[in-house]
């Protein structure tokens, strides 16, 4: 389903991704771990189409479609979703308006009819309740005055409503307390489906106790340097990345 081949990316004249290969099949959850600055967020941003990254070579295909040729909004409509490591605050745009605009913009791009108001309200209420997001938060500006954990839950709410084909979660566990981690992980697990692929970027094995991955990768210096099963995460937790940093050098 997702096919990344020899991806090389530069940011401001610095090579960040050095020939990254990765395939994720439909229905699979892949975890990506790796030291700070190894390029995990860069990969996530390039998948979502953030400007400022120069792809110097390589291909990214989602269901055979060349993602790199699409704008970020078109990628989203094709099913790409990025849960941000640092969700932004948008004062003056109510969360409800934001959600509705996003859902309908995607539907419009796919040639589908807009959601009716009652249908939209029902979906938001159901999804928000499961993530313990209250109505008052939905009325506020997007992420304005939200705690770190609330921002992350709001990302998962967006994911639940936008029903992506490919979800990339960039350190969604950072800044969450134990209870919030469970809420978020449950939210993610509910969205696992044979049609949906996920890439979960994390530093901590603990998240992977809740969201059990099919495959674990180690990213170091802009490349996947090791791939294994869920037990690889345990090994990394015990031994750290020292071995891989040498290997990539």
């Amino acid at each position: 389903m997702l096919e990344i081949k020899n991806l090389q990316v530069r940011v401001e004249d610095r090579q960040i991704l050095n020939g990254l290969d990765l395939s994720v099949n439909a229905g699979e959850v892949h975890a990506i771990m790796g030291p700070n600055g190894s390029g995990k967020s860069t990969l996530a941003h390039v998948l979502a189409g953030k400007p400022g990254y120069e792809v110097t070579s390589g291909d990214v295909l989602l269901d055979g479609k060349d993602l790199l040729a699409l704008g970020p909004d078109e990628r989203a409509a094709h099913g790409v979703f990025l849960a941000f490591q640092y969700p932004l605050e948008i004062p003056g745009v109510a969360t409800m308006t934001f959600l509705r605009t996003a859902i309908n913009a995607q539907r419009k791009q796919r040639g589908e009819a807009e959601l009716s108001t009652p249908e939209f309200m029902k979906r938001v209420r159901d999804a928000a309740a499961k993530l313990e997001i209250n109505q008052d938060m939905l009325r506020r500006g997007v992420n304005v005055g939200f705690s770190g954990g609330e921002k992350k839950r709001n990302e998962i709410l967006q994911m639940a409503l936008l029903e992506p084909r490919l979800a990339v979660l960039d350190e969604t566990d950072s800044g969450l307390d134990i209870d919030a981690l469970k809420i978020v992980a449950d939210g993610v697990n509910r969205l696992r489906s044979p049609q949906r692929s996920m890439i979960v970027i994390t530093h901590y094995q603990r998240l992977l106790d809740y969201i059990v991955p099919d495959v674990v990768h180690v990213l170091s210096r802009g490349r996947i340097v090791r791939t294994g099963g869920k037990e690889l995460a345990l090994e990394l937790e015990a031994r750290g990345y020292a071995a891989y940093q040498d290997e990539a050098a």
């Binding site: 979502a48 409509a77 969700p87 996003a102």
Partner: peptide, 11 residues
Amino acid sequence: LKFYLMARGIP
């Protein structure tokens, strides 16, 4: 901010 909105499918 613009990227955040566009990443959610908003042109």
